[in-house]
Design a protein around this nucleic acid. Sequence first.
RNA 1: GGUCCCAUCGUCUAGUGGCCUAGGACACUGGCCUCUCACGCCGGAGACAGGGGUUCGACUCCCCUUGGGACUACCA
Length: 467
Amino acid sequence: MTVRKVRTRFAPSPTGYLHIGGVRTALFSWLYARHTGGDFILRVEDTDAQRSTEESTRQILDAMLWLGLDWDEGPFYQSKRLDLYREYIHKLVDQGKAYWCECSPEALEAMRSQALEKGDKPRYNRTCRHKGLGPGPGRVIRFATPGNGATSFDDQIKGRVTVSNEELDDFILLRSDDMPTYNVSVVIDDALMEMTHVIRGDDHVMNTPKQIQLYKALGSPLPVFGHVPMVLGKDRTRLSKRHGATSVTAYKDMGFLPEAVVNYLVRLSWSHGDQEIFSREELIEFFDIGDVGKSAAVFNPEKLLWLNHHYIKTGDTARLAALVPEFLELKGYPVPDREYLQKVVTDVRERTKTLEEIVDFGDFYFTEKEPPAELRRDFFKPDLALAFGTLVEKLRTVDPWEHAGLEEAVRGVLEETGLKFKILAQPMRVALTGKTVSPGIFEIMATLGRDRVLDRLSRAHACMRGS
RNA sequence: GGUCCCAUCGUCUAGUGGCCUAGGACACUGGCCUCUCACGCCGGAGACAGGGGUUCGACUCCCCUUGGGACUACCA
């Protein structure tokens, strides 16, 4: 017996950037395909000509690639397949499974509000169903939804879902502007593209019975459905801009690493025992759509930050260093060579959670600036002048300019002056970095290099002597 | 309103009838380490929404209540 190769897809509509919740669904779909050795197809649902833009499409594809969610086929564009949908829709009309309707939007609105007032369901009353109308201006084609019985399906995540056909409307297949609607184009495409598993957001559950009826009318085999729970904001409503950044691109721009975003998102409604950190390979090995939980998850930016910090702490420094220049340029700092950058990353990574923070926290590695007056006053005391003077002198001869030699030089100063390192350290830190919080003194000095260190220390020394 | 879905610490979750005086992670917090801050390590506080059943035994199964969410377009 041959098992059909799994085929899943992601079908975004390019009406905006790639949403963090939407991409979680894409991730699940992608993982399921990869896990089963199947194919992942990308399809752009741009049948809404008013709201779709090429810019959005480009951004979405970029974001997918950035996260490493590659596709085996596509991207297919629904806007290029319009005639195909129309063909199938008209065939449905010919078979009596769909019909022309002349009800105006106003009439429908009136119908709806009336029904609502009476406490009925706001549905189309099927007035045109048996009129035997043909095409005409302002007319639409509606699906003749079977009126009795119930439609149910076994969702891979939610289990069996049943909806009475009474609830299904005679929904529109072809709009009066000759454009097919979402419900038809997805079904036709999913059928034609031979999707075996339709993995999508929870918000589509109620569309599924309608679509199943369409599959039946079209005579196409049904795919398996899997509706993944929503990602919610802190107030437990659907995640939106109100809750902060929601676009994948925004996280990239804030200095998040793609593996952190992926690792964070995959743990929303899915888990593998107590494991928190997953490599891409582990994800592909462990992920199964059937293990996805049923309940919605709240997006927690702090945990994302923790994961990002984890990957910054443990990532390859050369790669990290290569990602920093983009952020340096943004802040207007000159871009030093790779080797220097790599040392900076090594120095700061324990204390910076994002690429952006590497640049902010490590600003003193990239630019010269005087410590704030307040810090000069507090730390550059006259009684330290002697120590700083000898320190500068000793540092002139340190060779090689490395941690061990630097520490030795400082220790020499301590012995000569009888000072505790604790007393010397903060003033040194302020002199070298302009702040009271930084990486270790010796790491900083080693990375900064003799010239910069001598220069900054000398200035502090001069300040102590009151000149 | 109707239909559908969901319900373990603040948050993400483990748990598939006895292993649970409920485990892990983020966040919070006490301590250790220490040149600052981090990192790391050790410790703490913190949850099975409520009520009925089923069962020798329920976080786990069933029902109700409550609470939350989704959908209810000539958007996708």
